[in-house]
Design a protein around this nucleic acid. Structure first.
Length: 826
RNA sequence: GCGGGCGUGGCGGAACUGGCAGACGCGCUGGACUUAGGAUCCAGUGGGAGCAUUCCCUUGGAGGUUCAAAUCCUCUCGCCCGCACCA
């Protein structure tokens, strides 16, 4: 008998799939489409286990759904722009484009070696001019719609990466990519107005019923919607100035005892100019601005404030309260000015205690001792009734929020307002290896978009590799110097490139028509294939890529170019791959690579283990012994098929047709049912695989129970064929080979997914558990669907049960048909 | 601090709407076949008591609801993740 030779089999079928173009997808309106997509990788050099996991998950679905006769699109491409290419370029003295191309070449081979069923005709590379041309086109589209703008502001700067970062890309004050500290710099940069879409990005989360709750929650928190009032305070001695402040607690307005401005607030300087406070305040402002965001906003950071010497006027009671400048007030949130209500806000309370500012209680808790500013130990932030609040006294604070806002609106002193935490998306990057921003700066005409016909603005490919980093585009005069598209005079190109998250914000659309040369994508193709039905990737993109892609989709929806309002119908956030309780890393020496697994056991074994070890959304603990177990299982399947093929020649003398055969068929149909449900409805590939294992065990049991000469070859053949089909999404090569050995026609992956016959699952007799007071005390075998009275009768007549029930009074009997009888006795 | 998730054998993990806890795999034990096996096949395997038919205990812990709880409720402990002066 031929032994299971994974490398040989896998190579054979991979070659055939390629030759026969097996996984090519075409739009076909007569068929139901299904778009399976795994987050495309950054071509860092080699695949790791995380990649292998995400591709294995996607491929099971793609292969399964094809067999269910869906028109499946399953594409793959490369998120090819990005910093590591530049760093590698300097290190290895190789052009970033070349380094990237080399990596793609290698990683693609690895993917093919895993047997993933991609349609390679749709392969895209975001660093190719054919692709970034359309990234530029989309930028201009945004520009024309007023969604792209240039602004001078304080931005996050990562010194190590030598570029700015978007807010989403700063994690706990550190750069998301290199984990070094992020500082603040004032620069003129390009932004996308994602805040215009904040409300829709938030509300439409509700539609995303196929997304994990935690991802939606993270987006919700990130968007950070809060309702409140914007209230205007006049400034004493400055009749033309006013301070607008945002609060979620307008009901506490009568408790304001001071006002704090952010150091960056434009009013700070005019307020102190030519006063004895000028030096002190401006000094403090300068110091604070030098601090990094993390130092300034961490919870441990002390709250520091300086009095400006000026007073603001409370619009509801005319009180004059001191205006301070404070480090804890952020210019970027709300209006950059905070009304201080120490009695009812934790931060204000702490601040007031430190600087000895008055604390005035305006909300009294119900059913509690009355609070006084002098004695309270902490702020009262909960509900209560209003006091010291003029005509509002006695009002419940929740009511008060509405009533005060209404009053302010009537008086023209303020209004209802919604504020978001999310900021506009900073997309400029001061780096070479990215999509050039298609803008021309003309001294006369200002910044202008590059005319569509001049796209793409090509990235120069000859770069200097002599320094310690690849120089930015400003370094190349040939690139920079150009003519103004409006006046024809000398002008300079924008030299920043775009954040790579732009590239990945629309790639799923490009896959629907990767060669389209008149638009980023063909509207008909996108109309057919979009949205992505199942998206699979890491949770780390919860508020990065997944938010940006939703934003782009909504903008394109608004233009009418696509019909989908959301890009990803269902999302699966796959867990991480660990080994020995830690993330795989070189420093810990616990790395297992896909290459070595494929080499030792074959891709089928690796895939099977990854899918079997844990449900996809949970973290997975790598186990070498577990891999061996999966390999053993595949060999077991192999032997079944190979043995059968040999035995069939011998032929059965008298094929049996009895209980063993019925049991075998029952096992088959039970497995079909479980595997189908587990793949399609529950995404529990681990239990789907265990169901196939049980089926294989049942086949072995059959072979054990029946003599070789009595094998029922007809039934055995059917069971084996279907076993191989069930295994096809998980171990695609072995399934092909097994199918061929069994004499199947065509590819196993073109077979119809088997259906189960509920009749085959029916049994004449079932075992029913008998409980007394909820404890299992016996079992009886009764006919299926035995009527309740007979069931109870049978239960009570059992030897032991009768004994146990002696001198007991039966209070109640509960039955669950075909499952159990519970006798409640005293 | 706020928000979310998770605690089940020696290990990875099953258990659908409350209904036999521990499927499947790993590991371990015994047996068969073998010159040999780290190949393969068969059997056993949560803990404890007992010769035994059997009994008791067991899903992080403590209560509760229920005929019946891993599953529902309350409290509590531990771990993980996200946000974190957001006014």
């Amino acid at each position: 008998m031929k032994t299971y030779n994974a490398p040989e089999i896998e190579e054979k079928w991979q070659k055939l799939w390629e030759e026969q173009d097996s996984y090519r997808s075409k739009a076909d309106s007569s068929k139901t489409k299904y778009y399976v997509l795994e987050m495309f990788p950054y071509p860092s050099g080699k695949l790791h286990m995380g990649h292998m996991r995400v591709y294995s998950i996607g491929d099971v679905l793609a292969r399964y759904l094809r067999m269910r006769d869906y028109n499946v699109i399953h594409p793959m491409g490369w998120d090819a722009f990005g910093l590591p290419a530049e760093n590698a370029a300097i290190e290895n003295n190789v052009n970033p484009a070349e380094w990237t191309a080399r990596n793609i070449d290698h990683m693609k081979k690895q993917q093919i070696r895993l047997g993933v069923s991609y349609d390679w005709h749709r392969e895209i590379n975001t660093s190719s001019p054919d692709y970034y041309r359309w990234s530029q086109w989309l930028f201009i589209l945004m520009y024309k719609r007023g969604l792209a703008y240039k602004k001078k502001s304080d931005v996050n700067w990562c010194e190590t990466c030598a570029t700015v970062l978007a807010n989403e890309q700063v994690e706990k004050g550190l750069c998301w990519r290199c984990s070094s500290g992020v500082e603040t710099r004032e620069l003129e940069q390009w932004f996308l107005r994602i805040t215009n879409y904040a409300e829709r990005l938030l509300n439409d989360l509700e539609q995303l019923t196929g997304w994990p709750e935690r991802v939606k929650l993270m987006q919700k928190n990130w968007i950070g919607r809060s309702e409140g009032s914007e209230i205007t305070f006049q400034v004493k001695d400055f009749p033309r100035e006013e301070i607008r402040t945002f609060t979620t607690r307008p009901d506490t307005l009568f408790g304001v005892t001071y006002m704090v401005l952010a150091p960056e607030h434009p009013l700070v300087r005019p307020l102190v100019t030519d006063t004895d406070r000028e030096e002190e305040v401006l000094d403090f402002v300068a110091r604070t601005r030098r601090e990094s965001e993390i130092d300034r906003t961490s919870e441990e950071a002390p709250k520091i404030g300086h009095f400006t010497g000026r007073y603001a006027v409370n619009p509801v009671n005319g009180e004059e309260v001191p205006i301070l400048v404070g480090n804890y007030v952020l210019m970027a949130y709300g209006t950059g000015a905070v009304m201080g209500v120490p009695a009812h806000d934790h931060r204000d309370f702490e601040f007031a205690k430190k600087y000895d500012l008055p604390i005035r209680v305006v909300i009294q808790p119900e059913d509690q001792e009355e609070l006084t500013g002098e004695t309270m130990q902490e702020a009262w932030v909960d509900e209560g009734y209003m006091v010291n609040s003029g005509s509002f006294n006695g009002t419940n604070s929740r009511e008060g929020i509405k009533k005060v806002t209404q009053y302010l609106e009537e008086q023209g002193l303020g209004q209802f307002r919604v504020t978001y935490r999310i900021r506009d998306w900073l997309i400029s990057r001061q780096r070479y290896w990215g999509t050039p921003i298609p803008i021309i700066n003309c001294d006369k005409c200002g910044p202008l978009p590059v005319p569509e016909s001049d796209l793409p603005v090509k990235l120069p490919l000859e770069v200097e590799l002599s320094g310690n980093r690849v120089p930015s585009l400003s370094h190349y005069p040939d690139f920079v110097q150009t003519k103004c598209p409006q006046c024809g005079g000398d002008a300079a190109r924008e030299t920043d490139t775009m954040d790579t998250f732009i590239c990945s914000s629309w790639y799923f659309l490009r896959f629907t028509s990767p060669n389209c040369d008149y638009a980023p994508f063909d509207p008909d193709d996108a109309g057919y294939w979009m949205p992505v039905d199942q998206y699979i990737g890491g949770i780390e993109h919860a508020v990065l890529h997944l938010l940006y892609a939703r934003f782009f989709t909504k903008v394109l929806y608004d233009t009418g170019m696509i019909k989908a309002n959301e890009p990803f119908n269902r999302l699966l956030a796959q867990g991480m791959v660990y080994k020995d309780g830690a993330k795989m890393s070189k420093s810990k020496g616990n790395v297992v690579t896909p290459d070595e697994i494929v080499e030792r056991f074959g891709a089928d074994t690796g895939r099977l283990f990854i899918l079997f070890a844990s449900p996809p959304e949970k973290d997975l603990d790598w186990s070498d012994q577990g891999v061996e177990g999966c390999h053993r299982f595949l060999r077991r399947v192999w032997r079944l098929v190979a043995d059968y093929v040999e035995e069939i020649d011998a032929g059965a003398v008298t094929p049996a047709e009895g209980d063993h055969e019925a049991e075998l068929q029952r096992s088959l149909h039970a497995a079909i049912k479980k595997v189908s449900v587990d793949i399609e409805e529950r995404f529990n590939f681990n239990t789907a695989i265990s169901a196939i294992m049980e089926l294989v065990n049942a086949i072995y049991a059959y072979r054990q129970a029946v003599k070789t000469e009595n094998y029922n070859h007809g039934i055995l053949r059917e069971v084996l064929e279907k076993t191989v089909i069930l295994l096809a999404p998980f171990a695609p090569h072995l399934a092909e080979e097994g199918w061929e050995l069994l004499g199947g026609e065509g590819s196993v992956h073109r077979q119809c997914w088997p259906t189960y016959d509920p009749k085959m699952l029916e049994v004449d007799q079932v075992e029913v558990v008998i409980q007394i007071n909820g404890k299992v005390r016996g079992r009886i075998t009764v006919p299926t669907d035995c009527p309740e009275d007979q069931l109870i009768e049978a239960a009570r007549s059992g030897d032991r049960i009768g004994e146990l029930l002696e001198d007991k009074e039966i209070v109640k009997v509960i039955t669950v048909p075909n499952k159990l009888v519970n006798i409640v006795a005293r």
